[in-house]
Amino acid sequence: MLAGKVMVVTGAGGGIGRDIALAMARAGARVVVNDIGASVAGEGSDAGPAQRVVDEIRAAGGEAVANTDSVSEARAAAHIVTSALDTFGRIDGVVNNAGILRDRFFHKMGDDEWDAVIKVHLYGAYYVSRAAATHFKAQESGVFVHMTSTSGLIGNFGQANYAAAKLGVAALSKSIALDMLKFNVRSNCIAPFAWSRMIGSIPTETEAEQQRVARMKQMTPAKIAPLAVCLASDQAADTNGQIFAVRNNEIFLISQPRPVRSVHRSEGWTPEMVASHALPALKAQYFPLDRSSDVFTWDPV
């Protein structure tokens, strides 16, 4: 499905990114395997993880090159794209998968914890996408696959930084899809449910948290790869600006915000009328303070 294409996969040294890189190589793509080799919190660096995935791809007869630049800095992110051009002569797609976690309840969160997560997830997706966009525009083709999360789309405890970044990624993806449609460039999101090193860092201090993580352990990263490969292929040419989720063997199309109810008053509104009429009229359609686990309540199959 990806024969002749060159794909960049960030954060591909392990977990979801690794399985996507391997699957894309099996589908015929030449792959830039990007991974800085940092800890879950984004600390340190190690060239080993990216190179090991490259070795796996080559051992299976595929073509790949390792890259250890950070997505969180514009110049380094641009070098990820140029490594595809320098090695393979072109770039056809980007999978923005790199990520870190620094979970903390909002009232305890430090600026450094906020900045670090936003820089990798949101700035990282922007920097790599922006570097690739120039080439996609020139060749009038290209595809982006971004990793979002139900932590941002729905909600979760202790992840204000991660949730804000991931909802921002969904909006970024939609904006790219709108702005670059005329250049035949597509942009879609996947919210993955899968056990990974990053998910393994989630606190499990309560029974509910332990049960949640136990369910996540049943969902392997390899389950995400088929959708990513398909979205990157020409067979998904009519799929653009969408948000999907993958939960084990289930694939979901996720809703996007739209008006659900309105009230009108020809004389206009005063604060008192809003309180006495508008809010009571709209209250029936209020959304509950759900977490992701409140919406996805059934065991993965």
Rank of each mutant, 00 (worst) to 15 (best):
A77H: 05
D238N: 14
S149R: 04
I36D: 02
D35I: 12
M180H: 14
T204H: 03
G62W: 10
V71W: 05
C230G: 14
K137F: 00
V185P: 01
Q210F: 13
G61K: 05
R26N: 11
K108N: 15
V53T: 09
G17C: 12
V65Y: 00
G48P: 01
R52Q: 14
V8F: 04
L279R: 08
A237L: 12
D294Y: 06
V54I: 04
T297V: 11
P203E: 12
C189S: 09
T87Q: 11
A132T: 07
D103F: 13
G17Q: 11
R58P: 01
E113A: 14
L22W: 09
Q285D: 15
D103H: 08
V8N: 07
K174R: 11
L167H: 05
Y123C: 09
N34G: 10
V295P: 00
R18Y: 10
E140N: 06
I243F: 07
V94S: 02
R130P: 01
N188V: 08
Q51P: 00
A29R: 03
G241W: 12
A165M: 06
V94P: 00
T239C: 13
I57D: 07
S70L: 03
A29K: 03
V71G: 01
G61I: 05
K174Y: 09
I57F: 07
G4S: 07
N67R: 04
V274K: 01
L231T: 14
K108S: 11
R215F: 14
H135M: 01
R130E: 10
H79Q: 09
R102W: 05
R18V: 11
S149H: 08
G62Q: 06
K283I: 03
P280V: 11
A237Q: 12
I224H: 05
A38H: 08
N34W: 08
A236H: 03
K223C: 12
L253Q: 06
P221W: 12
D290C: 02
D115R: 08
A245N: 09
D55M: 00
Q256C: 01
H264F: 14
K166G: 03
D55G: 00
G61A: 08
G99V: 03
T10H: 05
L282W: 11
S187I: 06
